[in-house]
Design a protein around this nucleic acid. Sequence first.
DNA 1: CATAGTTTTCATTATTTATTGAAACTTAAA
DNA 2: TTTAAGTTTCAATAAATAATGAAAACTATG
Lengths: 181, 181
Amino acid sequence: MTLSEKNYAFVMHCGEMGSRWGFNRTIGQMCGLLIITKEPMTANEIADGLSISRGNVSMGIKELQSWRLIKVQHIPGDRKEYYAPAGTIWDMANRVFEERKKREIDPTLSLLRDNIIEEAHNDDERFAQQQMQEIHDLLETVTKWSAELQRLSPEQLQSLMKLGSGIGKVLDFKDKILKKP
Amino acid sequence: MTLSEKNYAFVMHCGEMGSRWGFNRTIGQMCGLLIITKEPMTANEIADGLSISRGNVSMGIKELQSWRLIKVQHIPGDRKEYYAPAGTIWDMANRVFEERKKREIDPTLSLLRDNIIEEAHNDDERFAQQQMQEIHDLLETVTKWSAELQRLSPEQLQSLMKLGSGIGKVLDFKDKILKKP
DNA sequence: CATAGTTTTCATTATTTATTGAAACTTAAA
DNA sequence: TTTAAGTTTCAATAAATAATGAAAACTATG
């Protein structure tokens, strides 16, 4: 099975973007390939399709599984493992988002917390601590918010997303309502 | 000027996180250092503080400026350039967010648009196009949304952020109101 | 306009990260 | 069991990325 020119371009683009999205080129390509391929693929098909080594695919699969982006499937009477995207595009985007939060925000939040609870010993530390407090508060707000979004039902999310420029209005509205009593 | 142990730990952490945040180790360190240092710093002070070469600092400054994270200041009677964070922590987070969107989302959106307007030639391309359409729609929604958030006044944002679990309620509320007429 | 203080550039070198492929491992079926 | 189809591991190698530092380029000032 060979990719059409357009599909190949998409897969290569995913590779180029891979490192920006949090993984590396090969893994980006694998992800793109599995998304645009209707049927689940074997590791060998992936290796052939992308002209990379079998070992590399094996490692890539492990990584994609750690991101919960792909799932394994089996075909009766066939010993090979078949791989396919784990869920909808939306699901996958969510996973990437979550996983990145875990890698990009949580460690910093943890360090900041540790640092903030200790007392500052001089002016430099005092100033630094104020700054860290600000970063901490910001990250915590973002964290709470994203957790909140995850908790909304898909319908509510849809509704929220479609709100667009209506957000401001709804907020004003809410303020008016809540301030009355 | 030497960093206290705690401040040093913070700066090193910024370095380790640097690549996750979209730049590299040195630039992460520079950013952290400038944030926790009250006074603007010269390039040489930065180089000394982080034990890196002067040339590296120069490149880092250029990069941080391209992210609009630092600004230059001058002291009368002193020819050196002094660097300081450009704005509040909130401002900086916003810049990083914007800049990353530009690098991580916009190029893909553009490729997807190009790909979607062309007609598919066979089943494989048809399926791929459907998937790309989904990714496109998702990214576009996210893009619109973040633009929307940028447009809100800081007070509205505060209000929205503090809403937390109230989001669901406000949404339900809005639905009721809007559906009445 | 010459100079000294300062910043930038970029070829070279060092470091980090990714890839290969052969060997080791796993496992279903004979 | 043994075998063979399939997968994983990991030491060696290749590729990409970052850092150095000396030379070039600026630029205020006398």
